[in-house]
């Protein structure tokens, strides 16, 4: 019993220490913005590898989610003769919830895990130590551009997800199931509020982008520099990011729409 308590205490202390280190890492990440402003090329390279290479999975997922929403929405709404609200339902679901949340989850799985593995391997192969010995701060040169690339990419990817989702919903609703196209688009235009829905969705995706990229970078930078350590860190990135996104989504939704 005592040893169990001691073990729990040990986990708790280690967890808090890691949390502290993660927060301390934020300072150099934010300070690295100065370097990025001087050399925007560093950021652009990372936006390509973190954001552009994630477009395919985001686009395909967005399209299919929109198509499923179109189908499910039509089946439910048609029971009450409300098919004309399909456009509004699809758009509101995507812009408020599914766009930011699913984009962040997919981002954590595709780009977050890749970020952790890349930084972890750089640590394991002494590339980060090599940079330090070349008088180059790896926190500014390696971590900060990746952090801001993630921060910038997630809202853009979420916007892309939502647009393609709406397109998918329209293809199914308007194209296959015969919902009136005028009503579909008009309902969406009238029902979606720019500040209430779109801005809040953007705020969510910025928060998720911040958290997912921060977790991915910290896990890579803080990992045990062995193959097992990198593998564990990559898993932790996906698990922690997913849980953080789902938890934060509840909190943000409660704050924004209550």
């Amino acid at each position: 019993m005592i040893s169990l308590l001691a073990q729990l205490g040990d986990w708790g202390i280690h967890g808090l220490v890691r949390l502290g280190r993660a927060h301390l890492l934020l300072l150099p990440l934010l300070r690295g913005l100065l370097d990025i402003l001087r050399r925007p090329r560093l950021l652009l390279d990372q936006v390509y590898s973190v954001g552009v290479l994630t477009i395919l999975i985001i686009g395909v997922a967005g399209l299919f989610v929109g198509m499923v929403l179109g189908l499910q929405g039509y089946y439910i709404l048609s029971r009450f003769g409300g098919e004309t609200a399909l456009g509004l339902m699809v758009a509101a679901s995507l812009v408020r919830e599914l766009g930011p949340v699913l984009t962040a989850l997919l981002f954590a799985g595709r780009a977050g895990s890749a970020l952790t593995a890349e930084i972890g391997l750089m640590k394991a192969t002494e590339q980060l130590s090599g940079l330090e010995m070349m008088a180059v701060n790896p926190e500014y040169r390696v971590l900060a551009p990746r952090f801001f690339a993630g921060l910038l990419s997630v809202p853009l990817l979420a916007a892309m997800f939502s647009c393609l989702g709406v397109l998918g919903g329209w293809m199914v609703g308007g194209g296959m199931l015969g919902v009136d196209q005028g009503a579909f688009w008009n309902g969406m235009q009238n029902g979606i509020d720019f500040r209430e829905d779109i801005i809040n969705g953007v705020i969510k995706s910025v928060v998720f982008g911040f958290v997912c990229t921060w977790i991915a970078i910290f896990q890579g930078y803080d990992c045990v520099p062995t193959s097992e350590g990198v593998s564990r860190a990559t898993t932790r990135t996906v698990v922690h990011s997913s849980l953080a996104v789902l938890g934060l989504d509840f909190v943000l939704t409660a704050l924004m729409f209550s």
Partner: peptide
């Protein structure tokens, strides 16, 4: 320290080249 390191070179066991 970084200024001093500019006058020091280090050859790591693995080479530590940027891959």
């Amino acid at each position: 320290l970084y200024r001093l390191r500019m006058r020091m070179g280090m050859l790591f066991q693995s080479g530590a080249l940027l891959t």
